[in-house]
């Protein structure tokens, strides 16, 4: 029932469809990209769009379209794995806090508040100062920074559910703590968690592209949208395409995740449905 409502919502299949295409492009990049994204061609430096270079070429004569397609890989990789780590740890911590209460709850939730005080991009910059800016380190940083979002959502949702009659009933029947957490509580907090996943993915892309823009993201030999904007912006009066297309890619992708999260929330939240 919920599922059919989700599918009928045009915002969901519009954004979901775009994201699906993007994922397929990223996975199939070696087959789908018209050119090698790292091959430089001196003769075609800053070439405008043509049959040879559909979106033009950058300041090294590299094909912009191919770099965009390859850039989707790193963006999706960092945001997906970062958010996945945050989601698993955050949901576990949030549920543990809500279920155990008392000092466990106090310690976990105050620690989450402290992590939230850190300005994400500054913390990420600090981490890559001490460690090398590799893909793994950027993923771990995103994971660490986004744990509190999931812990808070899971905590508040699980709090309501752990007092409900059916949890009480499960306990009376002799179900263990793990069984109650996984079978009774977890399925019931998945809806808000899913919304948070979608919104966090959008946010993680903003963070990753921001770091890449500052030259502190994944290593320079990997094409990334943020870095494309930074390096080509010095030549944008000669060929604006090298800056405009990666900008469009970032904006549309983040927009798609935000739209998806919003639409799922509107559909799942019964209070908003009829008003």
């Amino acid at each position: 029932m919920t599922w059919s409502r989700l599918v009928k919502n045009p915002r969901i299949w519009l954004s979901g469809g775009y994201l699906l295409v993007l994922v397929l492009l990223a996975i199939g990049a070696p087959l789908l990209a018209p050119k090698d994204p790292t091959v430089m061609a001196g003769a075609s430096r800053l070439a405008l769009p043509s049959a040879k270079y559909l979106l033009g070429a950058d300041e090294f004569g590299r094909d912009i379209l191919s770099r965009l397609i390859y850039g989707a890989r790193i963006t999706l990789e960092v945001s997906t794995f970062g958010v996945l780590i945050a989601c698993v740890i955050g949901v576990l911590l949030g549920m543990a806090a809500a279920y155990n209460g008392k000092w466990t709850e106090a310690v976990i939730m105050r620690a989450m508040d402290a992590v939230l005080c850190f300005p994400p991009i500054l913390l990420a910059l600090m981490v890559v100062t001490f460690m090398k800016p590799t893909v793994t380190n950027v993923v771990l940083t995103v994971g660490f920074l986004y744990v509190p979002r999931f812990a808070r959502i899971a905590h508040s949702s699980a709090l309501a559910i752990s007092q409900s009659d059916y949890v009480e009933a499960a306990r009376a029947l002799g179900a263990g703590n793990w069984r109650i957490l996984v079978k009774a509580i977890l399925p019931n907090i998945m809806a808000p968690v899913f919304v948070q996943i979608s919104l966090s993915l959008g946010n993680a892309i903003l963070l990753e592209s921001g770091l890449s823009y500052l030259g502190m993201g994944p290593p320079p030999q990997i094409p990334s949208w943020g870095r494309m904007i930074e390096t080509s912006s010095r030549f944008m009066h000669l060929n604006p395409h090298a800056v405009i297309w990666p900008s469009v890619a970032i904006a549309v992708t983040v927009l798609a995740f935000n739209l998806l999260g919003d639409a799922v929330r509107d559909t799942l939240d019964p209070r908003l449905r009829n008003s």
Partner: peptide
């Protein structure tokens, strides 16, 4: 508003 959320500062700034 949704578009505003989705545009990073450096993209708007560069444009």
């Amino acid at each position: 508003a949704l578009l505003g959320f989705s545009l990073p500062v450096f993209v708007v700034g560069t444009l």
